[in-house]
């Protein structure tokens, strides 16, 4: 078992999930509460990573973040190194890649909050921030947990973006799913079995947690 890769995957997933929630809550709130004009365009862009081949996304990011573009050169000027083939680059790629998995449940959750409650809060003087943090987030708590778990798992298992954008650098960009690929390539099926088992075990446990929660909640309400 490659513990270095395991910890790197965990660190990448945790960081990605945290950034995604910080981005997705305001984005989903804006989609639900905002005036309709740009809404479908934003939803389409936020859904794009779901259908885009991961290798395509990884390639675009590799070019964009590399030294060929103005954007990439600006990053080098700010950080002192390019984002491609680095852990920070993986974080950027993962955030974009898992964006739909965080935004979609939150949009659905926020939209299901009764609009008369939002009206009531506004009448009582609440601004946008208070409506989001004190009304939508607590009332759509389950969607928030779903978004977090899905983003985390999706990042744990990502392969195409990581390989394209990160290469395979131990300790920096070699994640567990890349280790699995390497093990299979070397015909080390016994090691590959263990790695695959860890990845699958995490998903099963997390999803079981998610669904058991929703079941007990449903029973409590009935």
């Amino acid at each position: 078992m490659d513990w270095q890769a395991f910890l790197l995957s965990l660190r990448l997933s945790a960081l990605t999930t945290a950034i995604l929630l910080a981005l997705s809550v305001p984005l989903a709130a804006w989609v639900v509460l905002g005036r309709a004009r740009w809404r479908s365009a934003v939803e389409a862009v936020a859904t794009l990573p779901l259908v885009l081949p991961p290798t395509v996304l990884g390639f675009f990011l590799l070019v964009l973040l590399g030294p060929r573009t103005v954007f990439g050169r600006a990053i080098v000027a700010v950080f002192g190194h390019p984002l491609a083939f680095s852990f920070s680059g993986l974080v950027v790629g993962s955030v974009i890649y898992s964006l739909p998995f965080a935004v979609q449940p939150l949009v659905a959750g926020f939209a299901s909050v009764d609009s008369s409650l939002v009206d009531a809060a506004r009448l009582l003087g609440a601004g946008h921030l208070r409506v989001v943090l004190h009304l939508l987030v607590p009332l759509a708590r389950r969607s928030l947990i779903t978004a977090a778990v899905l983003s985390f798992l999706h990042t744990m298992g990502e392969f195409g973006v990581v390989l394209m954008l990160g290469g395979d650098i131990p300790g920096a960009t070699r994640t567990l799913s890349i280790v699995l690929y390497n093990q299979v390539e070397n015909f080390d099926y016994a090691a590959a079995d263990r790695t695959a088992l860890v990845l699958m075990g995490m998903s099963v446990v997390a999803l079981a947690f998610l669904y058991s929660r929703s079941q007990t909640r449903g029973a409590g309400r009935a």
Partner: peptide, 17 residues
Amino acid sequence: PGQRASAFVTQHPALFP
């Protein structure tokens, strides 16, 4: 709505659950 010094109560109480 919050800065009109007005209050609005409807038949649907809309209490925060």
